[in-house]
Simulated scan of single mutants.
Amino acid sequence: MTTQTALSRRLLRRETRATRRGPAVAVAVVLTVILLVLLAGAIAWAVDGGFRAQAATVIAPVATIAGTPSALIGMGVLLVLLALLLIGLAVVPGRRARRTRLTARTALAIDDGVLADAIADGVARRLGMPRGQVAVTVARRAALVRITPTSGVPVARADAEDAANRVLGEAGFPLAPRVQVAREGVIS
Rank of each mutant, 00 (worst) to 15 (best):
L39G: 11
R157F: 02
L7S: 07
R9V: 06
W45A: 08
T100V: 03
L89K: 00
A83I: 11
V37M: 15
I119G: 05
A24L: 02
V92L: 02
I43E: 05
T16F: 08
S188G: 11
V33G: 15
V167G: 00
G94E: 00
D121S: 13
T64N: 09
V37Q: 15
L144S: 08
T100N: 02
L81M: 11
E184H: 12
V167A: 00
R166N: 01
I119K: 13
V181C: 10
Q133N: 07
P23E: 02
G132E: 06
L175P: 01
I59W: 01
L168V: 06
D112F: 02
V77W: 03
L78E: 05
R105E: 12
G152K: 11
G50K: 08
G132K: 07
L11R: 11
T3I: 07
L85Q: 06
T68Q: 06
T148M: 01
L168F: 00
L7G: 09
V25W: 01
L168Q: 02
T100M: 01
L39V: 14
T32K: 10
R101M: 00
L175Y: 00
G67A: 15
R52N: 06
P61M: 12
I43C: 04
A156T: 13
L82E: 08
A60I: 14
A139H: 04
V145S: 03
R157V: 06
T100S: 02
S8I: 06
D117I: 08
V167Q: 01
D111C: 10
E170L: 02
P69M: 12
V47H: 07
T16H: 10
A109K: 05
L127R: 07
T19S: 04
V136I: 07
V167R: 04
R13T: 10
I147D: 12
V153F: 04
P154T: 12
V58H: 06
A97E: 08
V77A: 15
A160F: 01
